Simulated assay, not measured.
Amino acid sequence: MSKATKSKWACSKCKFNDKTQPPINVTQQINPVFNITNDDFNNLTETVKFMSAKFDSFGTQLQELLSSVKQMREENQLLKEQNNKNNNEILLLVNRVNTLEQKALENCIEIVGVPEIKDENSVDTAKITISKLGVETTVKNAFRVSSKVINKPRKLVAELSSRQCSINIIINFKKVKPRGNTFHEKWGMEAIYINNYLSVFNRNLLLKTKAFAREAGFKFVWIKDSKVFIKKNEDQKAILIENETSLHKLK
């Protein structure tokens, strides 16, 4: 070692026995003394009691809340079941009303595409159309109804003497597939269509079924005996559409 290092060097024994350093009070450093008065202790006790009471109150409120939630769930389930029951009953009533309404219209047909003329006699126009289809019947009444198709003649509705007459007319129409000049030389080449005259419910159902068919890729939608049918393609069976629920089941 150099002289400078030697002058500073000391053995371990001498270092620890160096009396120039003040003694360290380890007890004071590790365990400091806390002075707690009776008031402090009483305040701490009151705080613990207060928190304990609050916790008990919170536990009671939590139990009441859980009980209320359980009761609400049970009531909600009952309401759902009652709502489903009501919906089924309403659907049943709607179907019954629709059946009665369609029954009242079973002698009626609608003729689409027949040109309108000024001061038209709808009964005479209906007779001209029906006579060309080889069906003998009495036209009891006839009238025009509005159409959603712009720049097209309004539909012609004819009330016939019997349901069988309306069935025969539709059968003969499908065989002939006539155009306007089939019935009258001045009616042109526009296609003429003859269908069952549907109730409001069935007309709306037919429109919804056609819209569904376009979206879902069903190829055929048609009316038979005032009922709506749908079919995916030629190889599948026809499906009766009774209401919107029938459409939802096909999705």
Rank of each mutant, 00 (worst) to 15 (best):
T5M: 01
C11M: 02
K13S: 04
F16K: 07
F16P: 00
D18Q: 06
K19T: 05
K19E: 07
P22G: 11
T27V: 05
Q28P: 01
F34R: 08
N35M: 07
I36N: 08
F41E: 14
L62R: 06
L66A: 09
V69Q: 11
M72W: 08
M72L: 09
R73A: 14
R73S: 13
E81Y: 08
Q82M: 11
N83K: 14
N87P: 04
N88W: 00
I90P: 03
R96H: 10
L100R: 11
K103P: 02
L105M: 13
N107I: 12
E110I: 15
G113E: 03
D119Q: 05
S122I: 01
I128H: 08
G134C: 06
E136I: 09
T137Q: 00
T138I: 01
S147A: 08
V149I: 14
R154F: 07
L156I: 09
V157N: 07
S161Y: 01
S162A: 11
R163T: 08
Q164H: 07
C165H: 11
C165P: 00
N168Y: 05
I169F: 03
I169H: 00
I171R: 07
I171H: 05
F173M: 02
K174Q: 09
G188S: 03
E190G: 14
A191V: 14
Y193Q: 03
Y193A: 04
N195C: 00
L198E: 01
L198R: 00
F201T: 06
L205N: 03
L206D: 02
K210M: 15
A216E: 12
G217Y: 13
K219F: 13
W222H: 14
I230L: 10
I230R: 01
L250Q: 04
L250W: 00
